[in-house]
């Protein structure tokens, strides 16, 4: 495949970025999108240029490190939702021009080229995305019963890998889907009950303080989510926060 790539280049956080255009003449349709970028970087290095910086780790679609906006869509396509590392070049046509941009959100400042700083997500998690469990003993597996439908829903929400595609896709740069996934996957389970109120209040406060926008229930987030996190999570988070507002203390 022959491709023209328009890639966002930005030397560091304070630098002014710009689009650079690169041509690739021999891309295999079996390459993943990140392998294609690896090949580009080899070309660039051989030519004595700075390679394109992009985030990645597992390359198996499970860690949430990778992610760029490809032709206006986070992770590249809506048809078979997946991460950028699991997107294959056969999804593109030979001769195509592909525009590659970093996630765009004030709360996700660009560090370099296609890498953004997603520590705002970590701060959201630090403010309630956990349960208190004694760490010295292993609990008896059947001591706390969980209904099958609840555990299924909790597992669906827990599939969130925190990649940030929801924020990138949202016209309001809102982090509601991420935060809601984290809140509901614990809130649906008995183990998550003791801190349920504290969790939603704390996580939403930090989410708002980080500079994400609000939700307008449009659903672009869920459409872009490689783990297909459902808007139900957001409704659940809203209800938890409303209830928390009417609680004492």
């Amino acid at each position: 495949m022959r491709l023209t790539l328009r890639i966002w280049r930005q030397k560091h956080a304070q630098a002014r970025g710009h689009f650079a255009t690169y041509r690739m003449d021999d891309v295999s349709p079996d390459m993943s999108f990140l392998e294609m970028l690896d090949v580009l970087n080899e070309q660039l290095t051989e030519a004595g240029e700075e390679p394109v910086a992009f985030d990645h780790d597992c390359r198996e679609g499970i860690c949430g490190m990778c992610g760029v906006v490809i032709n206006g869509i986070p992770h590249g396509q809506h048809k078979h939702r997946t991460t950028t590392c699991q997107l294959h070049m056969r999804n593109f046509r030979s001769g195509e021009t592909i525009t590659i941009e970093p996630w765009r959100a004030k709360a996700f400042p660009v560090i370099k080229d296609l890498i953004v700083d997603r520590s705002a997500f970590d701060r959201v998690i630090q403010n309630g995305g956990f349960i208190t469990a004694p760490t010295n003993t292993i609990p008896e597996a059947n001591a706390v019963l969980v209904a099958k439908d609840r555990s299924d829903l909790a597992m669906d929400a827990a599939a969130c890998i925190g990649c940030g595609a929801c924020v990138a896709a949202c016209p309001n740069a809102s982090a509601m889907l991420f935060t809601a996934a984290k809140i509901t996957h614990l809130g649906l389970l008995p183990q998550g009950q003791p801190e349920r109120t504290m969790r939603v209040v704390g996580m939403v406060r930090v989410m708002d303080q980080s500079g994400f926008g609000g939700c307008t229930n449009l659903g672009e987030c869920s459409l872009a989510c490689p783990k297909e996190i459902h808007l139900d999570s957001i409704a659940q988070m809203n209800l938890d926060l409303i209830k928390a507002g009417f609680r004492r203390g």
Binding site: R6, K106, P171, N172, A173, G211, G213
Partner: peptide, 10 residues
């Protein structure tokens, strides 16, 4: 929402 995305997509 506008502040949340200071730089838009090309």
């Amino acid at each position: 929402a506008n502040a949340g995305r200071a730089v838009g997509y090309a």
